[in-house]
Amino acid sequence: MESRAIVTSVENHVEDPEYRAGIIDLLGALGLGELSAFQRLAADAELAPTLADQAALAGMAAAEYRHFERIRDRLAELGVSVDEAMGPFREPYAVFHAKTAPSTWLEGLVKAYVGDQIGTDFYREIASAVDEDTRALVLEVMADAGHADFAVDRVRAAIEEDPSVAGRLALWGRRLVGEALAQAQRVAADRDALTSIIVGSAGRPGMDLAELGRVFARLTENHAKRMAKLGLAS
């Protein structure tokens, strides 16, 4: 009920300069995430052990690029280039990916399923506080491109074949969640306009500290559920 009240109240703020800047930041962060996902899935496809796996990942990469194009087109409608909107997020994304570079095919699958999904959950939470058109676009580009079932199937099969990989991947998953949550908090704190979308501003309500705490609790709970689905301890 609270999230719905926030959404209803922001419908009349789409022309507010601060709100518009926050939406551009939101779309910029999302767009860079989709572009990065495309690039990494394409690279992972080259490491896939079978041609069928390569083809599956290539298809997922193409879907992520289509998501990027949707955001790029919306930014163009707002009169903003991808460099202008996404540029501010390049460094935090680069830091995150440098700290979480997978060393194996399986680590890459876990990262795309577990690590990236924390960011997906975070932006879905923010979408509860934006206008209807922006929310619809966010939810559209956050839709699973088929990677979840693919990752779960391949990781579970690998564990069944060699149970010793489960421990290493569980440690990897815990590392991913720590880095991903830190990145989400850092991005929100460093961008005032994006922060205003989350916590609101004069005349436009947002989430209070208690609700923000619940948001990050839900991110952690969802992470644990995904780890369990992979057959890994969180």
Rank of each mutant, 00 (worst) to 15 (best):
H67S: 12
A76R: 13
T104W: 00
G119M: 13
A210G: 09
K225Y: 08
R72D: 10
A193H: 02
N222C: 06
G231M: 08
L109E: 05
A145M: 10
A45P: 00
A136H: 04
T104P: 01
P49L: 04
I159C: 04
P17V: 03
S103Q: 14
A127P: 11
L139M: 14
L209R: 07
L75A: 06
E125R: 11
T120N: 09
V110E: 02
A233W: 09
G200Y: 04
P205D: 12
V14D: 02
L230K: 05
G200S: 05
R191N: 08
P49C: 07
L171W: 11
A224Y: 06
A148E: 08
Q117H: 15
Q117T: 14
E84T: 12
D131Y: 05
A62D: 15
G22L: 01
A157Q: 12
R20T: 01
I6A: 12
D53F: 04
H67F: 11
L35W: 02
L169C: 05
I23R: 01
R90V: 12
G115I: 13
V7P: 00
M207W: 10
V10Q: 02
W105Q: 02
T220Q: 14
E161T: 12
N12L: 14
A63M: 13
S3I: 15
I71T: 05
G108P: 06
R74G: 03
T220S: 14
